[in-house]
Write a protein that binds this DNA or RNA. Structure first.
Lengths: 229, 229
DNA sequence: GATTGCCAGATTGTCGGACAATCTCAAGTG
DNA sequence: CACTTGAGATTGTCCGACAATCTGGCAATC
């Protein structure tokens, strides 16, 4: 494959190979986020291998990915199980989110225009979703897209990766609430307000709005795990 | 094993089982941090398995750990290799560090006394080290202990985990500098100054000192990777 | 001479089976 | 009732295997 170095005309082309391990991991994530596998559920290697029609090695590797993402925990000689979040852990997730997302908000002006656009686009997409039919998992996914965009304002690939892991845990915690938290339109408005404050360059007010929003998020996550136990 | 529930007298006892995979991963980390394996080095599964006297499956799993920690990168069908840090990535690491450690410094007063003590203890340990003989890897390890303690001030287990990953990359970048960055005593003083500002409750000055310190760290990391290519 | 087609060797991705070590849990024993 | 025992389940690690893919070189082609 010779690249005719005429300033790479094929730069946008991107074909990512999807391995069996990836597909297994993705299927497990889906199952987790949709609440099919409750917290504490044992993820037995042989059973999963049989159910998915793959070998135990492949399942093992996929489980390793989930553990690395914080979606499952592994106890030596006892196997891996779906992560069970207690209130302290929920608070930890929210506190970490606050640090990263606040840092993103503070860099609103310094960030690339494309990153600011990502925030606007994510909000629009979220608003569009609430106009039609949607599942709880979709709602949460689109909601978190906005927050991911906020984290991305930091411009740091690694902070976004860290945030990604936090969002995975949020989805896990919210997997078992049928009704999306609060009123959907209320949620949209909360984020719209935040964006408005950013657009008007009132970063202090935006930071405050974000803190309040995250406090609300923490409350609903606590409620979500409380209902379940 | 009957635990005579007299308010757990053995609470501090902790014997963690160390699997073969863990030992392989640890040996690879050591090798990476001491510069035996340069950036970009291919980590071939069969070769490592033969060299370490373990099976390929075990090596594969250990490599998965390193990839999750950011110490190695994996390209499908092409294997995993020691991470090669370019200047942009170094800047990313330092920027992420700044966000997390600054958040820790800001919570100096709210943090548990034990966490503040950890910072003091790490600094003393670092100072003690520079009084005797030490390797470059030891120097960096003790140095990062201080910064880890700063990150821990946030009180967030997840932010500390994120920082841990960043510190692994720092060690990787500094693996190939023989002389520890700058003068050892100068380094100790820089951190002492930071701690003094914290103790005197001048958080703004401490934040500034930290920012300056991280800028210096970024410079030496850039120098470190620059020398190598 | 540059590009393409093709082949051999090396390496990874996935599979299946195997076995010791460990865990679980219920039955048995004092 | 506390303790031990033992069978069954599960994990940790090993081995061997094979298709798919990558690498590098060499021949064929334009």
């Amino acid at each position: 494959m010779p690249d005719t170095a005429v300033s790479d005309p094929f730069a946008t082309l991107n074909l990512e190979p999807v391995s069996t391990v990836d597909r297994v991991a993705e299927e497990l994530r889906r199952s987790l986020f949709e609440g099919e596998l409750g917290p504490g559920t044992a993820l037995r290697e042989v059973a999963l291998a049989a159910a998915l029609g793959v070998s135990r090695s492949t399942v093992r590797e996929a489980l390793g990915l989930l553990v690395a993402e914080g979606l499952a925990v592994h106890v030596p000689n006892r196997g891996t199980q779906v992560r069970r979040l207690d209130p302290d852990q929920v608070r930890d997730v929210c506190q970490a989110r606050a640090v990263i997302e606040t840092a993103g908000v503070h860099r609103w002006h310094e960030a690339d225009e494309s990153l600011r656009d990502d925030v606007r686009r994510a909000l629009r997409s979220f608003a569009d979703l609430t106009g039609s039919d949607y599942t709880a998992a979709q709602f949460t996914a689109h909601h978190l897209d906005i927050h991911r965009a906020l984290a991305a304002l930091t411009g740091s690939e690694r902070l976004v990766a860290a945030a990604e892991s936090l969002y995975a845990e949020v989805r896990l915690a919210l997997a078992h609430v049928d009704r999306a938290r609060g009123n959907a339109t209320e949620q949209v408005h909360s984020h719209s307000d935040l964006l408005s404050l950013l657009e008007s360059s009132d970063l202090d007010a935006a930071t405050e709005e974000l803190a309040a929003h995250l406090a609300g998020a923490e409350a609903s996550m606590l409620e979500a795990i409380g209902f379940r136990e």
